[in-house]
Design a protein around this nucleic acid. Structure first.
Length: 668
DNA sequence: TTAGGGTTAG
């Protein structure tokens, strides 16, 4: 047996090797293999160099191991040296093991031209060398070249793709979001007898999920004979990404009943589902699961928990998790800061941001800055906006388009359209988001004509195209300024010229536009004729319009439908109750309020509370409306309790910012 | 007696 034996670790191998006085080539190879098995790449190269010094000539077994180490360490210079050695010796020229290792080394070091040169010199490449090329293109960000190379391979004689090739290919399709090719590969997989290959099917599942082939993903999952934790997690994430968070949670429970043990990745996507479904109960259960598995303080898990608690309207629980994170990164700060803002606590966001800057061990990035500017814009203090603007310039973020757009939005929300348009004009490369921000700014200040002018300018003088959000902004601007004909024209433009499919929000704005000017019949007609079924948001808007124009009969019809769809949104009940109130139908008011109480509607109340807070903030932020904003703002700090105690009254005044603020002011 | 390519949930 001699030196050869299966070492349980490279430590044993090295020890035995060290004690030897004379080493054969085979013994060198065994040692190198053993080191590579333990991923001790530096040691591999170190011993490989030693081998040269001992004048032992490496053979076709040694070279792949050394090249693998170069690939893993991205040591292209060393790899090139080995390549030089290979070229001097004709015996290596036709060796496919050496060839594929060279290709892989160059590919991993990002040198695809060199990899291709090696490949082209091979007389008869086999499946592994072909696959190495496909994988190289895929890894270096050229997925379409990977597909092209695969096509070349399919034409070559004597090579048949195996499971590794197919997995690489599916990965390329995923990167291209190309579910069509994914489907072809799927067909091939089934025909060639790979239909039971779990990793391959999981890759396909992921490809469908990522390339918006929702139905295909679900169908594939349903017909899989075997599923592992990856299959389940992929499909759960797929449901979440397609807006079906409740289904995602159901699938998760099915997975647990099935006896599949969840892991960190599962926990992460389930937390996302809880956040999207605002399901605090399931969220807490998942939190317990994370604790039991000992992964709660992993920064990704904690971040997902912070996000979940924030989206479930529990900012203090979120903060508790956040404060336990041992190594905070910029992403978890983003979750905290944006979470406070969306809970109507923008001031807290700014405080936390200051803390982060003081701690001085996390560098803000562009995303964080966008969030902070967003928090600032919720508060609406011009001086603070200017301060953050100078910060943005100081740290060199001002060339970022997203930040540019946020600044435009910030200044317009602070009531300074002149600052907003100044920032806008200074942005050299204006993308759709930047244009949209300015249009939105004009819209929220009731400057519909300016918004239309900007929109026209965007369409005529720039190369960027308006998208769904731009249309939502411009439609909303028209609605707020009562520009009904322009609004209808724009809606038509969106559908016929830009071929954009209106989403429920667009229909809601359209209904709002018509509702505001009393065109209730037309609004109803539109909800009947639109290709989607009416959402609570659309019906809610319609109900709001009925209230403005005091059309009780229509309101009751709409409300009936609305309550069927959304039975626990307190705001809609309050809207209806308000209508009855105005007409003095107190019996109906009482009936509705009781039904709210009996249903134990809480989440809806929390949502309304946040909405109200936002509205008050915005109202207070507006310079023109209130010169004493600082004073009121201090009072608003104590708002939480006041609002909760007097919630119904607050909701009652929801759309009249002035009355609401006055009532808060008076109370305090 | 020893050697080469791969992926997937977040």
């Amino acid at each position: 047996m001699g030196f050869y034996r299966k070492f349980s670790s490279s430590v044993d191998a090295r020890q035995v090797f060290g004690e030897m006085t004379k080493r054969s080539l085979y013994q060198w190879n065994t040692l190198l293999k053993s080191l590579s098995r333990d991923k001790l790449w530096e040691d591999v190269l170190c011993h490989f160099s030693q081998m040269f010094r001992d004048e032992e000539k490496p053979d076709n077994f040694t070279l792949p191991v050394a090249l693998k180490a170069c690939a893993e360490l991205r040591e292209v210079k060393y790899g090139e040296m080995i390549h030089g050695f290979v070229q001097k010796d004709a015996t290596f020229g036709s060796d496919l093991y050496v060839g594929s290792s060279l290709i892989d080394m160059y590919a991993k070091c990002g040198k695809m031209a060199e990899a291709l040169r090696v490949f082209d010199e091979l007389e008869k490449p086999d499946i592994v060398t072909w696959s190495s090329m496909v994988s190289g293109f895929e890894k270096n960000g050229f997925p379409s070249d990977a597909l092209e190379f695969f096509r070349r391979m399919a034409m070559a004689p004597d090579v048949t793709p195996d499971r590794v090739t197919l997995i690489t290919l599916v990965s390329a399709c995923t990167k291209l979001s190309n579910s069509r090719t994914g489907r072809c590969v799927h067909g091939f997989v089934m025909r060639r007898g790979f239909e039971k290959d779990l990793s391959l099917l999981n890759s396909l599942l992921n490809c469908y999920a990522k390339s918006r082939a929702f139905k295909e993903a679900v169908n594939l999952f349903k017909m899989m004979a075997e599923r592992d934790v990856i299959s389940w997690s992929t499909v759960i994430a797929c449901y979440v990404q397609n807006g079906a968070a409740t289904v995602a949670l159901r699938v998760f429970n099915e997975m647990m009943d099935n006896g599949t043990e969840p892991n960190v990745a599962t926990i992460l996507c389930v937390l996302q589902a809880c956040a999207a479904a605002h399901d605090l109960e399931q969220g807490c259960k998942t939190h317990e699961l994370a604790i039991r598995k000992g992964v709660e303080t992993q920064v990704k898990v904690s971040t997902a928990l912070v996000d979940m608690y924030m989206k479930c309207f529990s900012p203090e629980e979120a903060y508790a998790v956040f404060s336990r994170i041992p190594k905070k990164d910029v992403v978890c700060w983003v979750a905290l800061i944006s979470g406070f803002t969306s809970n109507g606590m923008a001031e807290r966001s700014i405080e936390e941001f200051s803390k982060m800057m003081l701690e001085n061990n996390t560098r803000p990035d562009a995303i964080l800055m966008v969030k902070v500017l967003g928090s600032c814009s919720e508060l609406g203090f011009l001086e603070q906006a200017e301060c953050f603007h100078s910060y943005v310039i100081k740290f060199g973020f001002d060339s970022n388009q997203f930040i540019g757009a946020s600044l435009v939005e910030l200044y317009s929300r602070c009531g300074s359209l002149s600052h907003a348009s100044k920032v806008f004009n200074e942005i050299s490369l204006k993308d759709t988001v930047v244009w949209t921000s300015l249009i939105t700014g004009y819209g929220i200040h009731g400057k519909g004509a300016k918004a239309l002018e900007t929109f026209d300018h965007m369409v005529k003088s720039s190369e960027v195209k308006p998208n769904e959000v731009t249309f939502l902004s411009i439609l909303s601007a028209c609605s707020h300024s009562g520009l009904i004909h322009d609004g209808l024209r724009i809606f038509e433009l969106m559908v016929s010229d830009y071929r954009l499919v209106p989403n429920p929000e667009h229909y809601a704005v359209l209904v709002d536009l018509l509702g505001r000017v009393g065109e209730l019949d037309t609004a109803i007609e539109i909800t009947r004729r639109m290709p989607i079924s009416p959402t609570p948001q659309i019906l809610g808007t319609l109900l709001g319009a009925c209230r403005i124009h005091q059309n009780g009969e229509m309101a009751e019809t709409v409300a009936k439908k609305l309550f069927e769809l959304e039975s626990n949104h307190a705001g809609y009940y309050m809207l209806m109750s308000n209508m009855y109130g105005v007409k003095g139908e107190w019996e109906n008011v009482e009936k509705l309020r009781n039904s709210v109480k009996n249903r134990g509607i809480k989440k809806g109340l929390a949502e309304s509370l946040i909405e109200i807070r936002r509205k008050v903030h915005r109202f207070v932020a507006d310079d023109n409306l209130h010169p004493e904003k600082e004073k009121i703002y201090r009072l608003l700090k104590q708002l939480g309790l006041h609002m909760k105690e007097d919630l119904e009254k607050s909701v009652y005044f929801e759309s009249e910012g002035v009355s609401l603020c006055d009532s808060v002011y008076a109370e305090a």
